[in-house]
Structures are given as structure tokens and as C-alpha cells.
């Protein structure tokens, strides 16, 4: 997994609420099985007009936001379907970090599995950030070590993140490798459970 320490660049606002993973990436783009092209199709229903040309009203299409590594979104971002391709599609657009008041739970977990940092921030901080990025060409910096967002005006906004997830992201650690060390605990639990709840254990 790609590690995350700091990211510096433009932050693009997409201030709709409840942006779901279906709109982030259409399911048929996933069944097509070409992960490298997902970035082209991120937000396709909003990003392109019916004739296939770019929709100039879609904020991330504006020249100043092209390739921005940070997305600021309305609350409950990434709700809906569990598709992990939603994270891959955002990464394909060049995003490394999403900031919102809240996130869909499964999407939030999927970000950490893929080196993407989701930051929960109170609405007032989000409003500050959006107001500044709207008028300034100066980039923002997200620092996961210091747990800070530096806004275009140089103001520092602190954020919190789960300590274990932060550690894994900073190091690019793999969960499975860590869990396999507890093999003996798992075996012990299962041995006891076979006696306590035999009905759960299906024949092999």
C-alpha cells in the first residue's frame, strides 16, 4: 500500500451532500475490469455532458482545479455501495485526500486500505477552507505526521485521525500481515467456540 505522509496542492470543493459511490464510479466501469481507466470515469454523470464533452459547471473541471490532490465535499461523502473501485477512481483523478464533515463507513474504511486519507472536519473549518481555496491560487498542505491542514493563507487547521490507522498509513502497512501474527489466538477462540456454539460450525 502507498504510504501517506504529506500532500501539497489545490483543494477542489464539491459541496453537495450525500455524494454516493455509484456517482463516484458507475458499476459497469468496474465490471469492465480495467482499473487503469477508472480515473477517466470518476463522477462521469456530473463531469461530462450527454455528448461526452466536459461539463464546465462541474467544479473539478475548472482549469485551476485540474489534478488537485485534495477534495472537499459535503457531509456523508462516499455513502452507499461498498465498491472499493470508488477509491481507485478518485485516485485515478489524482486525489490523495478527501475532507468532509462525515463519510460513508465502508468508503471510509476502503480509503485506509488504499493509501487515501479521509479527514473528518467540523463544518466551520470546511467553510473556512472552501472560502480560502475559492479565492487563492496558493496550495494547501495536509500533514499526517503533524495532523494539520495548512490553508492558502497559512492558517493551520488541526484534525484528528485514529492512531492505528494513522500509523498504518504513514508506514504503508499491510493489515493482513499484522493479523497473521495472532494465528494462535484465532485458533484458540475457534476451538472454544466449536464447543460453545456447535451450531455455527458448518460441515466442511
Amino acid at each position: 500500500m502507498q504510504a501517506f505522509t504529506t500532500v501539497t496542492g489545490r483543494a477542489v470543493p464539491l459541496m453537495r451532500t450525500n455524494i454516493d459511490t455509484d456517482v463516484i464510479i458507475r458499476i459497469e466501469r468496474l465490471t469492465a475490469g480495467e482499473p487503469s481507466t477508472l480515473g477517466t470515469y470518476a463522477f462521469e454523470a456530473w463531469r461530462y455532458l450527454p455528448d461526452g464533452t466536459e461539463n464546465p459547471d462541474f467544479t473539478p473541471n475548472q482549469p485551476k482545479y485540474r489534478g488537485a490532490p485534495i477534495l472537499i465535499a459535503g457531509r456523508n461523502f462516499g455513502c452507499g455501495s461498498s465498491r472499493e473501485g470508488a477509491v481507485h477512481a478518485l485516485q485515478g483523478m489524482g486525489l490523495r485526500c478527501v475532507i468532509a464533515e462525515s463519510f460513508g463507513d465502508i468508503f471510509f474504511g476502503n480509503c485506509f486500505q488504499n493509501g487515501m486519507l479521509p479527514i473528518r472536519l467540523p463544518d466551520e473549518n470546511i467553510q473556512t477552507l472552501v472560502a480560502e481555496t475559492n479565492v487563492s491560487e496558493v496550495p494547501c498542505t495536509i500533514d499526517l505526521k503533524l495532523l494539520t491542514i495548512t490553508t492558502p493563507s497559512g492558517r493551520t487547521i488541526p484534525f484528528t485521525t485514529d492512531p492505528q490507522r494513522r500509523e498504518a498509513l504513514l508506514e504503508g502497512l499491510d493489515d493482513i500481515g499484522l493479523t497473521l501474527k495472532y494465528e494462535a489466538d484465532i485458533t484458540k477462540w475457534q476451538t472454544q467456540d466449536r464447543l460453545a456454539r456447535p451450531w455455527v460450525w458448518l460441515p466442511t
Partner: peptide
């Protein structure tokens, strides 16, 4: 519901890291 990466963890260990 979980993502694919978390399914892999569950398949390999029959557990999940959860809060």
C-alpha cells in the same frame, strides 16, 4: 458490508480489525 481488501483479510484470517 465491507470492501474487497477487507474481504481478503477476512478470508485469510476469519477475523476483521474493527472498532
Amino acid at each position: 458490508g465491507v470492501g474487497t481488501s477487507e474481504s481478503v483479510h477476512a478470508l485469510a484470517t476469519q477475523t476483521m480489525r474493527q472498532r
